[in-house]
Amino acid sequence: MTAIEEISFKLILHSGNGRSYAFEAIKAAKEGEFVKAEELLEKARKELESAHHIQTQLLQKEAAGENNMINLLLIHAQDHLMTGITVKEIAEELIDLRRDMMKQRGRE
């Protein structure tokens, strides 16, 4: 396995984990379990932070003149990262909305 393939798989792993935790957080909030939802969001943030760190290292290497081999796997990994970040941000908003709805109904 090449270095760029290994990096790509790490990006996919952390991004996918982050996305999954974000979806679990939405489900927990839907069930009124806001503490659990926040814990899952924190896990999502940490996973996506790890993925973003990997991406930043690639960008820094390229800025320093190292030529990164761009292949379909790396592009796929970048898609996973962007999707994970988007899902996490939407999850944060949905959880806030759910919390507000529950407060208005006097159920939190």
Rank of each mutant, 00 (worst) to 15 (best):
L74W: 09
G65S: 02
L59H: 15
Q60S: 07
D79V: 14
G65A: 02
Q78C: 06
H80Y: 07
E66A: 08
V87A: 05
H53Y: 12
K103N: 13
R98H: 02
A63H: 03
Q57L: 14
L81M: 14
I95W: 09
M101C: 04
M101V: 14
I54K: 07
L59F: 07
L72Q: 03
H80K: 06
A77W: 00
H53G: 05
M102Q: 12
M69C: 03
A51W: 09
A91I: 02
T83L: 09
K61M: 06
N71W: 02
M102W: 13
D79C: 11
M101L: 15
H76Q: 07
L73K: 07
E66T: 10
I90D: 01
E92H: 05
M82V: 04
I85W: 09
L94R: 11
R98N: 04
Q78T: 11
N71H: 15
M82D: 02
Q60C: 00
D100K: 15
M69T: 13
Q78G: 13
H80E: 04
G65T: 01
M69K: 15
N67R: 12
K103E: 13
G65M: 04
R99P: 01
N68W: 05
N71M: 04
L74K: 05
E66Q: 12
I95S: 13
I75A: 15
L72F: 07
K88D: 03
I54G: 09
D79W: 11
I90P: 00
T86K: 10
A64P: 00
L81D: 12
Q78R: 08
K88F: 11
R99Q: 13
A77K: 11
G84L: 03
E89Q: 06
E89W: 04
H52P: 01
L97A: 12
L58A: 09
L59Y: 10
A77N: 06
G84P: 02
L81K: 10
I54M: 10
M102C: 10
R98L: 08
M101E: 10
I90M: 15
H53E: 15
I75L: 15
Q78N: 07
I75H: 00
E62Y: 08
H80R: 08
A91K: 08
A91T: 03
M82F: 05
L72M: 15
A77V: 11
M69Y: 06
T56H: 06
E93H: 13
N67M: 04
H52Y: 14
I95T: 13
I70E: 00
I90W: 00
E66K: 14
I90F: 12
T86G: 08
H80M: 06
Q60T: 11
Q55K: 13
I75M: 15
T86Y: 09
H80C: 08
A91M: 03
L72C: 02
M69S: 08
A77T: 06
D79S: 07
H76G: 08
I75K: 00
A63K: 01
R98W: 00
H76K: 10
N67D: 04
G65V: 01
I95Q: 11
M82E: 06
A91Q: 04
